[in-house]
């Protein structure tokens, strides 16, 4: 089975601070990590390869230093890695990003399965995976929490929906976005890390992909961020006192008064 795992380098959220004056994220000196959800996508691909064989390519779009997360993917066991990297991609929103990644996946040739984390921890849109499927014309399933074994060109998965779980059978090729509960990612191996250090990554530019200049980077991104702000902190919290029974009664009365229940 030919698999592609999309990975993204993101700032370590646990280290990010918000500038109290401007409300902007302060990214200086913040270490970069692999988007945590993507580790689960890699683990899913590794387990599928263990079960049915095949090849895994890790794919990332980003600046040259995004190479680090691709090497990490190789250390974990993926077969090869491609970095899509060009100044022309700067300022891409999810539409331009998914367009660009789709071109790279097409360039890789026949692919059966594309795996993505459910979302990135910096952008948090959860759009790139589904958009990728649309560009590629693949079947798709988001928020995958359990995975079957592929057979006869199809794959059964379980996804989390708003009000329960859905069991879905997809015809391959397909794009999946996976949740953390899907699996527990492994640690890299020493031999994998040595291999990762020496591995040659493929680096593809906009020209290599034959990208339409009007669909990539800033030009290809209809999204405009009008402003970023932290919500005002209100001090409306009220403490209910008394016994548990009294507190619950008071809460129910309030909620009924507000027509919440």
């Amino acid at each position: 089975m030919e698999m592609v795992v999309c990975v993204k380098q993101v700032p370590d959220a646990s280290e990010v601070r918000v500038d109290p004056a401007t409300n902007n994220l302060m990214r200086e000196g913040v270490p970069s990590i692999m988007n945590p959800f993507d580790r689960h996508a890699i683990e899913a691909a590794l387990r599928l390869r263990e079960a049915v064989g095949g090849r895994i390519t890790a794919l990332s779009m980003g600046p040259p230093q995004a190479e680090e997360v691709l090497r990490e993917a190789i250390a974990l066991g993926v077969d090869e890695a491609v970095l899509v990297c060009d100044r022309a991609f700067a300022g891409s929103d999810t539409l331009a990003t998914s367009y660009t990644l789709a071109l790279a996946i097409r360039k890789l040739g026949a692919v059966d399965l594309v795996l993505c984390g459910q979302q990135s921890i910096d952008g948090e849109t959860a759009q790139v995976g589904p958009e990728l499927a649309e560009h590629l014309g693949f079947a798709q399933c988001s928020y995958v929490r359990a995975l079957g074994k592929p057979a006869e060109g199809a794959l059964e998965v379980e996804r989390a929906a708003e009000d329960g779980y859905e069991r879905v059978r997809l015809l391959l090729p397909a794009v999946l976005t996976v949740m953390k509960e899907l699996n527990e990612p492994r640690l890299p191996s020493l031999k994998g890390m040595l291999r990762a250090k020496k591995a040659e990554l493929r680096i593809w530019t906009a020209a290599d992909l034959g990208a339409d200049p009007s669909r990539i980077g800033q030009a290809g991104s209809p999204t405009r961020v009008a402003g970023v702000f932290a919500p005002q902190r209100g001090k409306k919290a009220q403490l209910l006192t008394g016994s548990v029974v009294e507190q619950v009664q008071a809460l129910v009365e309030r909620l009924q008064a507000e027509r919440v229940i």
């Binding site: 492994r186 640690l187 890299p188 191996s189 020493l190 031999k191 994998g192 040595l194």
Partner: peptide, 20 residues
Amino acid sequence: RLCAEADLFGVWIPEEYGGL
């Protein structure tokens, strides 16, 4: 099992015998 997966058992064994 995790130590094995991480290749930690092989750190002192020569490469010709599968170690690091």
